[in-house]
Write a protein that binds this DNA or RNA. Structure first.
Length: 825
RNA sequence: GCCGAGGUGGCGGAAUUGGUAGACGCGCAUGGCUCAGGACCAUGUGGGUUAAGAGCCCGUGGGGGUUCGAGUCCCCCCCUCGGCACCA
């Protein structure tokens, strides 16, 4: 009997799989295809066991699907552009590519040592020109369709990373990457018009029943659809681009009769006209306010004191022709709705605070049922539904009903129309950094903004650059890059020096994996057959960012005819974090657990099995250094038993049930049951319980002392099936055992085992006996015994007689194959 | 504040969806093997009561309810985690 030495066998099988190309797939053959994808990593430093969970889940799935006869595509690559590489360049003087390349080597080694199988012929590295050339191509397509554009807008600026950030990259007012407080700046930047797809991105979430509800809810929140009414206020004495009309958006049109003033955003274009029209004193007052507003540092996600100033002009409420003042206020966003609001202080807390501060009138138009609100004593706005009052012919209606009626009435009268607003903003994609794909745009003195012609792609990122975090792209200081000629007129021109957000890189990589073409981003014919991805696996931290952007880009590519499906990821699984001492693993906290030492000590199979056994894969789990011993023991026990059985040199042949001992029959049935249950667990991603059942099966194997040759055959049958079922979790040791038991490698060529229905039933069933719902005893019975038999048997038990003595038996509940409950008075 | 997920032994976690709560594993205890330790093997392990066993009582965040029977269903409350939040 040989000892189990993982070190010896794991290297052997990793080499075997690689040499025989076990994970390579020809995508031109689309029969029985299964596209399994784990989110490609950003290559920073080394993997810890938390990252490993992702790849282990993915690999278990890949192997399981392969054994089910699917042609599984399992690619891997590197999300290789990004700030950490550039920061390393600034700090350590190492070139971002050098740093990235080294990290890729480390990660690759680690993935190999886990035994994770990938088609390395399809490796993607997003920072290499052969890839980012096509990222730039997508940008040009977006530009061509008017979906990539420049605008000046308030943007998120990270003072530490010295670059702008997308809204999605600001978490709690802080930079998602470095944690610094993000401030709002007015800047001209490149945006992608994701808002054009807002409705579809929202609606098509319904096409994704197998996405976690949590993720869909987050996306819905983020898109933030609101249905309401755009109301046209008439301006008194003043005109602007929309004539005398000032549209405002509200979701509470039922409160329109309570509007006592109107507020426009500081950036609202009407303000320019107002400044022209009003007298000097007023003008000064407004400008003072605007200057104060401009000079305050606005932190992202921070609520500021509501301030504003009366503009001197009036608007007319179209429902009652009332003249109300137009204010400008810092709490109104230009980016949302129409950039102007009607203020109903009695029924909106924000307006209420503003009205209190400036002593503006408060008028109640919604009364809670059975109560009377008094504006002079109200301490906060009443925002709930209620009965409408002071609302002309709508008074007396329930507010929810009034909302609908007023909207229709306004449309009839032409003083408003129903409208929809989204909280989603366009995606800011320019970054003032070096380590990203250059934006393929040229600024010509004569022709203005000119896209780089497709044939000139890629716009190469220059190699020799000085890395100084100045707040401007380092490319600005590379004259050979910066200065160019206009593709249109041939005149002097300058290149765009900002680079693309790395989320642009990752928004389409899953398409390229299936078809790595030289002269195009991918071959649509192949992509349309392999996509959508059958199973996508990754962290929930991308619930909004990457997953929303990818959905957007897919829809765009569909609209320009490059793909024919609306959603890129049919099924999504988000795994939970592995935490240590209650916190996310991170270098700064010093609580990272490296897979390397664990693999050295126990082998990859033990680590893989343990990580999957720890708990349900979608939930966070606490890492425990000691508990991994359990899996080490399990695999050793498995190995020893397999060796013992090997030494019996059992002849081939089917197990003959009639020749088995009672214990042998029991084990034989347990094997069938294990196949059934483990298969179901695999389908449901319940790897933890699948492994628990395999441990039980091994315990059952150990429980049988063979009475005859047939029993020994049953044991071999059991260990072979256990080997097959265990393979997705512990691929190396199962390959080795499979071979040592006299079979031809690879075990992956075997079909996943099947169970037979007739062997699932137990020979004997334990029936529980309750008296008044309390467990009092049990007995055994043959399966499917009839009710009367069970009733009789239960009543004959001495315990039951003890508890029912002198009492009337009211009812007896019999649940077949399960229990008898005797109910007394 | 709103939305979502969750609360089960000393610990990680199971529970056929209303039917033996605590599978499986860690840890712990006792015994075996060993010069010894480790490894390994066997047995036990929710709490209380008891010399021990049997027995009995309690027990799935708290309180109430439905039911022959509730971790599971309903109502109220508490706590933890995640997301959103001047979005009109």
């Amino acid at each position: 009997m040989e000892k189990y030495i993982p070190e010896k066998i794991e290297k052997k099988w990793q080499r075997f799989w690689e040499e025989k190309g076990y994970f390579e797939v020809d995508t031109r053959d689309t029969s029985r295809k299964f596209y399994a994808l784990v989110m490609f990593p950003y290559p920073s430093g080394t993997l810890h066991v938390g990252h490993c969970r992702n790849y282990i889940i993915g690999d278990a799935l890949v192997r399981y699907k392969k054994m089910q006869g699917f042609r599984v595509l399992s690619p891997m690559g590197w999300d290789a552009f990004g700030l950490p590489a550039e920061n390393a360049a600034i700090k350590e003087g190492i070139h971002p590519w050098e740093w990235t390349r080294k990290n890729i080597q480390v990660l690759k080694r680690q993935l190999h040592s886990l035994g994770a199988g990938y088609d390395w012929k399809r490796e993607i590295t997003s920072c290499l020109p052969e890839y980012y050339r096509w990222t730039q191509w997508i940008f040009l397509k977006l530009f061509e369709k008017g979906l990539a554009y420049r605008k000046e807008a308030p943007v998120n600026w990270c003072p530490s990373c010295k670059t702008v950030l997308a809204n999605e990259q600001v978490v709690d007012g802080k930079c998602e990457r470095c944690g610094a407080e993000v401030i709002i700046k007015e800047m001209e930047q490149w945006f992608l018009k994701i808002t054009q797809y807002a409705e579809e991105l929202l609606k098509d979430l319904d096409l994704l029943p197998n996405w976690p509800e949590k993720v869909k809810v987050m996306q819905r929140n983020w898109i933030g659809k609101s249905e309401g009414v755009e109301i046209y206020f008439r301006l008194k004495d003043i005109q602007w681009e929309k004539g005398k009309i000032l549209p405002v958006f509200t979701t509470r049109v039922d409160t329109i009769f309570g509007a006592t003033y109107v507020v426009i955003a500081p950036r609202h274009p009407l303000l320019k006209e107002i400044l022209k029209a009003v007298d000097e004193k007023k003008k000064k007052e407004i400008e003072e306010f605007l200057n104060r507003w401009r000079s305050t540092v606005k932190k992202a996600g921070e609520e500021v004191e509501k301030e504003g100033v009366f503009t001197g002009v009036y608007a007319i409420n179209p429902v009652n022709d009332e003249e109300i003042p137009v204010w400008v206020g810092n709490y109104v966003l230009y980016e949302y709705g129409t950039g102007a609001i009607m203020a109903v202080p009695a029924h909106d807390q924000r307006d209420f605070e503003f009205a209190k501060r400036y002593s503006l009138p408060i008028r109640v138009v919604i009364q809670p049922e059975g109560e009377t609100l008094d504006p002079s004593t109200m301490e906060c706005a009443y925002e709930e539904p209620g009965i409408m009052v002071n609302s002309g012919k709508f008074s007396g209606l329930k507010s929810e009903e009034g909302k609908k009626k007023i909207a229709l009435w306004m449309e009839e009268k032409g003083i408003g129309k129903r409208s929809v607003c989204y909280a989603l903003r366009d995606w800011l994609v320019s970054r003032q950094r070096y380590w990203g794909a250059p934006i393929p745009i040229i600024y010509c003195e004569k022709c203005g903004i000119v896209p780089v012609p497709e044939k000139d792609l890629p716009v190469l990122l220059p190699q020799n650059v000085e890395f100084l975090p100045t707040g401007e792209s380092p490319l600005k200081f590379v004259p050979e890059f910066l200065n160019t000629t206009c593709p249109k007129c041939g005149g002097k021109a300058k290149r765009e020096t900002d680079t693309l957000d790395t989320f642009v890189d990752s928004s389409w990589y899953y398409l390229r994996y299936v078809s790595l073409e030289k002269d195009k981003p991918f071959e649509p014919e192949v992509v349309n057959k392999w996509l959508p991805v059958d199973q996508y696996i990754g962290g929930v931290e991308h619930a909004i960012l990457h997953l929303l952007y990818s959905r957007f880009i897919t829809k765009f590519l569909r609209d320009i005819g490059w793909v024919n499906f609306p959603e890129p990821f049919q099924n999504l699984f988000t795994q939970g974090m592995v935490v240590k001492d209650g916190a996310k693993m991170s270098k700064s906290k010093g609580n990272v657990v490296s897979p390397d030492e664990l693999i050295e000590k126990y082998g990859a199979d033990t680590l893989r099995t343990y990580i999957l056994f720890m708990g349900p894969p979608e939930k966070d789990v606490e890492w425990d250094d000691r508990a991994i011993e359990g899996e080490w023991r399990f695999l050793n026990r498995y190995w020893r038993k397999a060796e013992e059985i090997r030494e019996w040199e059992i002849k081939e042949g089917e197990v003959k049930i009639e020749n088995l001992s009672e214990g042998g029959r029991k084990l034989f049935r347990r094997v069938h049951r294990a196949i059934k249950e483990v298969t179901q667990d695999m389908e449901d991603f319940r790897f933890n319980t699948a492994i628990a059942k395999l441990m039980e099966l091994l315990n059952d194997i150990y429980a049988l002392t063979p009475k005859n040759e047939e029993d020994r055959k049953a044991l071999k049958f059991a260990i072979l099936n256990l080997t097959l079922l265990l393979h997705p979790f512990a691929p190396h040791v199962t390959e080795e055992v499979w071979e040592r038991l006299g079979n031809k490698p690879s075990i992956m060529d075997q079909l996943w085992p099947r169970y037979e229905e007739k062997y699932l039933a137990e020979e004997e069933i334990t029936v529980v006996v309750q008296v008044n719902g309390k467990l009092r005893g049990k007995f055994t019975a043959p399966p499917d015994a009839d009710q009367d038999f069970l009733k009789e048997k239960a009543l004959s038990l001495p315990v039951v007689q003890k508890y029912t003595e002198g009492k009337e038996i009211k009812r007896i509940i019999v649940v077949r194959n399960r229990l008898v409950n005797v109910v007394t008075e």
